[in-house]
Design a protein around this nucleic acid. Sequence first.
DNA 1: GGATTATATTCCTATATGGGAATATGTCAA
DNA 2: TTGACATATTCCCATATAGGAATATAATCC
Lengths: 124, 124
Amino acid sequence: MARAATTTDAFNAIAEPRRRQIIDVLARGRPHAVGELVQTLRIPQPAVSKHLGVLRKVGIVSVAKEGQHRLYRLNATELKPVHDWVKTYERYWSHQLARVKERAERKATERSSKDKPPGQKKEE
Amino acid sequence: MARAATTTDAFNAIAEPRRRQIIDVLARGRPHAVGELVQTLRIPQPAVSKHLGVLRKVGIVSVAKEGQHRLYRLNATELKPVHDWVKTYERYWSHQLARVKERAERKATERSSKDKPPGQKKEE
DNA sequence: GGATTATATTCCTATATGGGAATATGTCAA
DNA sequence: TTGACATATTCCCATATAGGAATATAATCC
C-alpha cells in the first residue's frame, strides 16, 4: 500500500501546513469565500480550491452557495479526535515536575543500557 | 512538489495510525525494544523498524542500545506543537454553549445563502 | 569458528500527492 | 446573447510513501 489518502481522516488532512492555515483563517470570524482565502493567504486559487476539497471531504469545512461565491465554514468538531489523542501527552510538558521526571527516566535508561551485563530481557 | 515527507514534522509523522499506536505503547511504561512492539502490536518487524525510523527522525522517539536490543523511548515533547495548534479549537466542542453558538451560526449562514438567489442546493 | 537472535536496510510496486498551467463550469449583469 | 467574475477541474510531473519479501548487519552464545 501507499501512504493513506489525505482525505482519510483529520490526522492526514491537517498534515498539510496550508490546510492548517486555511483552518486558522476560517476560525477567526465568519465563513469565507474562496477569493478571500486566496487574498489572505496568498495562495493560488486552484490550490486553495483543492485544499478546501480535501477539508470538505473529511468534514472539517462545509460549503454554502451564495451567489457566485462559495462560503466555506469551519466545522471544528472534526478536529476533536486529534485533540483527544494528543491531549493524552500534555502531561509530558505542561508540568515542570513531569519534565524533571522525564529527564530522570531517560538518564536511568541510558545508564542501564550502558552498565548492564550481557543477556537481559525485559518484561512482556 | 509532491506530498511533504512523513519526516517533515510531527504533524506528518503522526498521520500514520500505526505510528500513533507505537507512540501509545511507548507512553505507558518504560522504553520498549523493537521486538516488544512487534509482539504487542502484531506488526511485522521491518514495518516497526521503519516506523520507528520516521519517529526518530522527527525526534518523537530516541534509541538506546542495550545489548543486541534497541530500547526506544518516547520523547513526547515533540508532540507539543500539535497540541498547541489543535488546542485552539477545543472551545468548539468542550462547552455546550459553544456548540449551540456553532449551530446558530451555521443556520444563519445557510439561511443567508438560501434567501438571496432562487438557486439552491444542499452540501454534496 | 558456526548458529541464533534482534534489528536495520534494500529492492520492489501501486498509489497518491501538491503544484503549476490551462481550461471548464457557473453565476451574475447589461 | 456577451462578457466579467468566482470557483472547480483536468492534465502533467517529480516525489515519496507503506507494505512485503528478502537480505544485511550486529550482538550473543555454543
